[in-house]
Design a protein around this nucleic acid. Structure first.
Lengths: 226, 226
DNA sequence: TCAATCGGTTAACACTAGTTAACACTAGTT
DNA sequence: AACTAGTGTTAACTAGTGTTAACCGATTGA
């Protein structure tokens, strides 16, 4: 497993802060949670995080002011601002450069994660170096390779992504539209047919171990069993 | 596939609501999100969720008032209250009974999930990887397969679900409307006829072992005997 | 006993998914 | 620029699944 990334989260709403913290932790971040701007600055000094996620509206010191101060010490650390809907665009634009990005509330964790990884430029962090067992097979996501005993088969990027998502939900149903949106961007007719083709290809490649199957659940999606 | 559980979430803070919704969705819930007490009541009527998660402090109608109204229509539906730290214990205690539970903000998703499952009384979250014996047959729910001696028959998803529910209540009567609501979503005429067809198909497949029978109890449902 | 209702069975149908091959496009190579 | 290999999309055909319809028998209550 790769090293945890230390992230400073400054968010004063306790409920939201707690859940964002937890979600990031399950994704293998080490989260330092500050409840206001001043505390955030102290924790930044003390903990030296790699990336900051700052709520703009906070008691004691707002996110922008905090960012200016931190930038004097560290001009490269990536910062993501969490802004309220009411925030005017031009104020945000003033901070839209360098290692900065922003996210309007309400946001989804997926959006936050994507931005975090983009700024860290470590897109494939979570999938790093993982050897995923699928029955007798071993999937190496990084190398797009599928091992079976002494054989190794190369997977294309699409095949690999698809199998990876299936393997994440082993023995559970993976939603059709979820895959389509995730991998193809939308779930229109043609993409759906394209996916069918890939399912077909994967089944062929997974035939070596008869205990591994991709089962269709009509109208819902697929289930990888092993 | 294990059908999605419909859950009504009433939470007025948009950021928190969005993230709780998303987290529940990744755990395979169907989440109906209401932004205030009135909307929550309307959605409760319309969507008929299985469980409610209500913020206590909400605009237009607070969680407790809402719960009282809903309890008049449905005295058994599980309700989880999300309470602020300031909420006094005795007020909460007034609602601590029956299918109720509460959770202090800030809470973690894990805590919420545990309470949801507790109230739903679904211990068997991950469905049996186990092989279910039905007379001389063995049902493998995961793989949708029905084994008989050396033969293996593939079941469709519907067949498998239906047989699974029957096998859970072996030698007991399984309610018609229960199956219909569980598998088809509602118990209208057409779905009922559709189910008849599936019962018919299953009987055909179960013929190999004459000791296994699906017996109809007119007006009530079916009994799988073996 | 007879109509009414419920459930059983079969087949037709509509729709979804599976498979294969042809095609278009990209990137790398000569 | 031409050639090649690899990848993903589109198309055409086939197979599988669940719903609807039609017809029938069984059970029930008036």
């Amino acid at each position: 497993m790769s090293r945890k990334i230390k992230l400073l989260l400054a968010e004063d709403e306790p409920s939201l802060g707690q859940i964002v913290k937890e979600s990031l932790e399950t994704r293998n971040f080490e989260v330092i949670h500050a409840l206001n701007g001043e505390e955030a600055y102290e924790l930044f000094e003390k903990e030296q995080p790699e990336i900051l996620v700052l709520d703009v509206m906070m008691p004691k010191k707002d996110g922008f002011t905090l960012a200016k101060e931190i930038r004097q010490e560290n001009s490269t650390i990536p910062i993501i601002f969490l802004t309220a809907k009411s925030q005017t665009k031009d104020v945000i634009d003033g901070f839209q450069h360098g290692g900065n990005d922003y996210l309007k509330k309400p946001f989804s964790m997926e959006e936050l994660i994507v931005r975090v990884y983009n700024l860290l430029d470590r897109v494939s962090l979570k999938r790093n170096l993982e050897k995923i067992p699928i029955g007798e097979f071993i999937l190496n996501y990084e190398k797009q390779k599928l091992h079976y005993k002494n054989d190794t088969e190369l997977l294309t990027h699409r095949e690999c992504e698809l199998l990876y998502y299936l393997s994440e939900k082993k023995n559970e149903v993976l939603d059709r539209t979820f895959i389509l949106n995730k991998l193809w961007g939308n779930d229109d007719f043609f993409n759906a047919r394209s996916m069918d083709v890939f399912i077909s290809k994967l089944r062929k490649k997974l035939k070596k171990d008869p205990s591994v199957e991709i089962i269709n659940i009509r109208g819902y999606g697929y289930k990888l069993t092993c």
